[in-house]
Design a protein around this nucleic acid. Structure first.
Length: 673
DNA sequence: AGCACGCCGACT
DNA sequence: GTCGGCGTGCTC
């Protein structure tokens, strides 16, 4: 060592391992060799030895420090895979909080947040970064229109949390290009954020929504300031877009659910379109929805948060009621022309198929001037148990869960708590006769086409979706959720399968239907009639007055009484009976400072393959405690569990892992279906 | 996951 | 007396 070299402090890197194993879900300290000092910055991918020098694991440096927290001898970082800091501190903090809340691994969340590395893409990007051509400054003063003078602007500027009732209309953003008006609103909000020098993230449920948003953005924001980050795009494209987000210049980042993890520095806005759409539910562990990630990220970053939708979800309504999110409605108000009809399908079946005469007449007239939307149910619903006499769906008398039946002559039992419904009787008509109701498949386009001979028919469904249709007359038959945007709006909207959609057995069926119908009605031209067939009561009323939030608000007291989401939270625990039993028995039974908060367990019920499932219901105050408790149960059960079995027959040794030792899932609304 | 440590049966 | 079986536990 020469005299000039100052004695260097030992540099320590704290590393998150890329591993799904819960027992490895913590930071490990490694010494940074002198040769890697320059590269070993927080956020970079590294390779490190684990347990023995021969075994190399991958991970990310989360932070560097000079203080030693680990008392043993440190191993050295083996290699810095790339000097690009892909796991930013903000995203790391988000991943850690989100995983804690969901009793999952931080590395599982990071896997959603950081796309796999593409060496060629990364090299090209790095080269481009050196050439230092910063984008032209975005000079504009965009404003969010349709909500009163600068009302939303100031909400954005002050970082508020907002539940925004979208404007039910379509809009021509450039000649011949029509999008839902909601897309314009979100694009304006994003543009305003960008103009203030900050980035905006906009999460939409599916690709069709994303297209509309991009069209709306393209006329407001320079194209090189827009990134599309979508888990379905090819890896190279996704990684390229991801790297762009790491650049200092603010951007608008658009994508589906995983976009809420985009590494935008200086984040000014997170916007979520239609938060109740099930596509916002992440199917990968730890199963955290866009809504929840957005709420956590807003809390951490202090950015503005915009939930926009035509129909308010009960989850959002709860947040409005506790004052956490502020509601805004269009000003001037926009009221679609909704007409409920109790008319029965016409007797003349051959001519009118199953369309009631009022609906048929309206459609006939509208078809003379432009396109008409016909929304139908998706084919094939599961059979449900209902009262044989009055058709009221059968529910568990203990917990209001859904009743299921195993075999033909078996007694129905509750899917949630397992209670046997031995002496069931209908709470509506007191009948004791229960039967299986099978909702038939949806009506076909051909069937509808026969009712309107000589008309152009366009079918849009899950397999053959149409994004848009032109303004010429056509009967557009779409399954719910696959409605195209029509140039100028539909001249009439027919919601035909209301009854069938409502027949689906699910706690959330009413709010789901309200969302599907509202989204379809919002595609109508100004003052064009939207006819809803066979639906009355509070549902129809909230559509006619276009005040879906009132319906959501009215749901909440019932949910509180029944102890159902969103008034309580749920966690389902699946595993072998003794494991689930252990996890349940180690749950906390009280939370300090929240003496009135309660927790209870439904089940366990059989989940097949020798596994059982219990559903834990708890008040929000319990959230952190329940997550922590379940997490430690997961860790306890994940260690030393590999069992080797010697097969008697062949004498060969097979190593097998018992199926998921303990699976935990929070706020899974599908459990109620 | 992997891999090392550690405590009981059949062998030079 | 040991060699090695795989249950248990740890990984900076």
């Amino acid at each position: 060592m020469t005299a000039q070299t100052a004695p260097e402090q030992l540099l320590i890197a704290r590393v998150m391992l890329e591993s799904p194993l819960p027992q490895l879900d913590r930071l490990f300290d490694y010494a940074v060799p002198t040769a890697l000092r320059e590269q070993a910055r927080p956020g970079v991918r590294v390779k490190i030895p684990l347990r023995s020098a021969g075994r190399i694991a991958r991970g990310y440096i989360v932070e560097t420090t000079e203080a030693v927290e680990y008392s043993g001898t440190l191993s050295e970082i083996d290699e810095v895979t790339s000097s690009v800091p892909v796991l930013t501190p903000a995203v790391w903090n988000l991943a850690r909080r989100v995983s804690e809340r969901a009793a999952g691994s931080a590395s599982d969340v990071v896997r959603l947040a950081v796309p796999p590395r593409q060496v060629r893409v990364e090299k090209a990007w790095q080269l481009e970064q050196q050439s230092e051509n910063s984008p032209a400054e975005y000079r504009a003063n965009p404003t969010v229109t349709g909500y009163g003078e600068r009302v939303i602007d100031s909400a954005l500027d002050t970082g508020r949390r907002v539940a925004l009732a979208a404007i039910p209309a379509v809009h021509e953003v450039s000649p011949g290009v029509w999008v839902g008006r909601w897309a314009v609103t979100l694009a304006e909000a994003a543009a305003r954020t960008l103009a203030s020098g900050r980035s905006a993230i906009v999460a939409v449920p599916d690709y069709r929504d994303q297209q509309q948003l991009i069209e709306a953005l393209a006329v407001l924001v320079p194209l090189d300031r827009i990134s599309q980050l979508d888990a379905r795009q090819p890896n190279a494209d996704r990684y390229r877009a991801f790297l762009r987000c790491l650049e200092a210049a603010p951007r608008v980042i658009v994508g589906n659910r995983s976009v809420v993890y985009a590494p935008a520095e200086n984040l000014g806005l997170i916007a979520v379109w239609d938060d109740a759409d099930p596509l916002h539910n992440e199917p990968l562990s730890p199963y955290v929805s866009t809504r929840d990630v957005a709420l956590v990220r807003q809390e951490q970053s202090g950015c503005a948060l915009l939930f926009a939708s035509h129909s308010r979800s009960t989850w959002l309504e709860r947040l409005v009621e506790i004052g956490y999110v502020a509601p805004y409605t269009p000003d001037p108000a926009v009221l679609p022309h909704v007409v409920p009809t109790a008319d029965q399908p016409g007797a003349d079946a051959a001519a009118h198929a199953r369309i009631p005469s009022t609906a048929w007449n309206t459609a006939r007239r509208a078809l003379e001037v432009g396109p008409v939307l016909v929304q139908v149910a998706r084919p094939g619903y599961a059979p449900v148990l209902a009262c044989q006499d009055c058709r009221t769906p059968a529910r568990c008398r203990v917990c209001e869960g859904t009743l299921r039946i195993g075999g033909a002559r078996q007694t129905p039992s509750c899917e949630l708590c397992g209670a046997i419904a031995a002496d069931w009787h209908c709470r509506h008509c007191e009948s004791t006769r229960i039967r299986l109701v099978t909702a038939g498949t949806g009506r076909t386009a051909e069937e509808l086409g026969r009712a309107f001979p000589g008309t152009r028919i366009i079918v849009s469904d899950g397999e053959r979706p149409h994004l848009t249709v032109d303004a010429r007359p056509a009967l557009v038959v779409a399954t719910r959720g696959a409605e195209p945007v029509a140039a100028g709006g539909y001249r009439a909207v027919l919601l035909l399968d209301g009854e069938r959609m409502l027949a689906r057995e699910s706690l959330t069926v009413a709010e789901d239907c309200l969302r599907w119908w509202s989204n379809a009605i919002a595609l109508a031209a100004p003052r064009a009639p939207a006819i809803i067939v066979g639906v009355g009561g509070a549902l129809a009323r909230s559509l006619v007055t276009w005040s879906q939030h009132r319906f959501a608000a009215a749901e909440l007291p019932d949910r509180r009484t029944l102890r159902f989401p969103p008034m309580v939270r749920l966690a389902t625990v699946t595993g072998r009976p003794e494991t689930v039993e252990q996890a349940i028995s180690s749950l906390p039974d009280s939370v300090e400072g929240h003496e009135s908060a309660t927790i209870d367990v439904l089940g366990p019920v059989d989940a097949g393959d020798g596994l059982v499932r219990a559903t834990i219901r708890f008040d929000y105050a319990f959230g952190a405690e329940v997550a922590r408790s379940l997490r430690s149960s997961i860790i306890r059960n994940s260690t030393g569990r590999t069992k080797r079995q010697t097969s008697k027959a062949t004498g060969t040794k097979t190593s097998f892992r018992p199926p998921p030792v303990l699976r935990v899932r929070f706020d899974d609304t599908e459990i109620l279906e």
